[in-house]
Computed example of a mutant assay.
Amino acid sequence: METYSQPSRTFALSTFAIDAEEFPGLVVGEHVLDLRGHWPSVDAVLREWDRAEPVLVELANSSDHPWIALSDLAVRAPLRPRQVIQSGANYRTHVVDLAVAHRDDLTTPEAVAAARAEVGAMMDERAAKGTPYLFTGLPSAVAGPYDDLVLPGYSDRNDWELELAVVIGRPAFRITREEALDHVAGYTICNDVTSRDLVFRKDMKEIGTDWFRSKNAPGFLPLGPFLVPARFVGDPGDLQVTLTVNGEVMQDESTKDMLFDVAALVSAASQIVRLEPGDLVLTGSPAGNGIAFGRFLRDGDVMEGTITGLGTQRIVCRSEA
């Protein structure tokens, strides 16, 4: 360990490991402070966020503690959520792209343009008068920001969906949109991987989407690397979401393209379920998914995903043995 002087006021949280022993850590620059003298886990920090945040500010601005070099630590998923609320069809361009990709009757550029205009108008109407499309994911799908992703052998159409993830810091039940951001502790990165060929049930089309099969394989929710407090993120409606595959930029979109902003999503989720500290609300995927390019994840692919101010996760894909 080393003495780390003059830490920045900006900090983040995550879960780290030394010799497989996990602990919560306060991240300041390239150094980490072990928080086990205060809390046993990041989840425990979030359960008392109102008391914890000023303590974290004080710790981040003190040099009287033994700091550990970030490079000496393994980085785990920053937290283990109790609930994962996911948002579908929440980016205008993404929805338009998907609608066109799923149609095989668009044989001319004019037909594609007309279809895009039609779907775009529908999304504008939905944003003005509709409500978010929310569903649940399984916490068991959460993985670390640098873990390998094992591509399940039952699908060859596994796709990336880098998303801004909202971390709840105060209980929220049937709150208004105006109240919603007061219940947010911070933000992190999530790649909501999807098996595209399992989204729709072929045996009973009336059922519609099957998110259980298409989104919940082990490792399908890489999370992190850091949980950044809301005070350091600025406007969550003006962040850049960027994902590359083998160095090629696939997603590069602003959260400005969201149909329903963070406050609207958190409020809508709270109308149905009681949100608790540590719960995640995913905000949906921007455009640039593999299905739009006819290009899906393969063995050896490397995904790197970053969102303004939240760090970068790096996931290597492996075929299922």
Rank of each mutant, 00 (worst) to 15 (best):
M1G: 14
T3E: 15
S5C: 13
R9N: 05
R9K: 13
T10E: 05
A12Q: 11
T15M: 03
T15Y: 02
F16T: 04
A17I: 06
D19V: 07
E21H: 14
F23E: 09
P24C: 12
G25D: 00
V27D: 04
E30Q: 14
H31G: 04
V32P: 09
L33D: 07
L33F: 12
G37C: 10
V42E: 09
D43T: 06
L46W: 05
W49V: 05
D50M: 01
V55T: 12
L56A: 04
L59D: 06
H65M: 12
S71R: 14
S71E: 15
A74S: 13
V75I: 15
R76N: 12
R80N: 02
V84W: 03
I85Y: 07
I85W: 10
Q86I: 00
G88N: 03
Y91C: 04
R92C: 11
A101I: 02
H102F: 12
H102Q: 14
D105R: 09
D105K: 08
L106Q: 01
E110T: 08
V112C: 01
V112I: 14
A113D: 14
E118I: 03
V119H: 12
A121K: 14
M122S: 08
R126G: 03
A128V: 05
K129M: 03
Y133W: 13
G137F: 06
G137K: 15
S140R: 14
D148C: 05
L151R: 08
G153T: 05
D159M: 05
E163F: 09
L164T: 11
R177E: 14
R177G: 00
E179T: 08
L181H: 01
H183V: 06
V184Y: 03
I189M: 04
R196T: 00
L198R: 10
D203N: 13
M204G: 12
G208H: 08
D210H: 08
F212T: 15
F212M: 13
N216W: 01
N216L: 02
A217I: 05
F220L: 07
P222Q: 06
F226W: 15
F226G: 02
L227Y: 11
L227D: 14
P229C: 11
P229V: 09
V233Y: 03
G234F: 05
D235Q: 10
D238L: 08
L239Q: 06
Q240C: 05
L243G: 02
G247E: 09
V249N: 07
K256R: 15
F260P: 08
A263F: 01
L265S: 00
L265Y: 02
A268Y: 12
A268L: 02
A269F: 08
Q271S: 13
E276G: 03
L280F: 15
G284Q: 09
G288M: 04
I291P: 00
F296M: 10
L297M: 13
R298A: 12
G300N: 09
D301P: 01
M303D: 00
E304L: 02
G305M: 10
G305T: 02
G305I: 06
I315T: 08
I315S: 04
V316R: 15
V316Y: 02
V316L: 09
S319D: 11
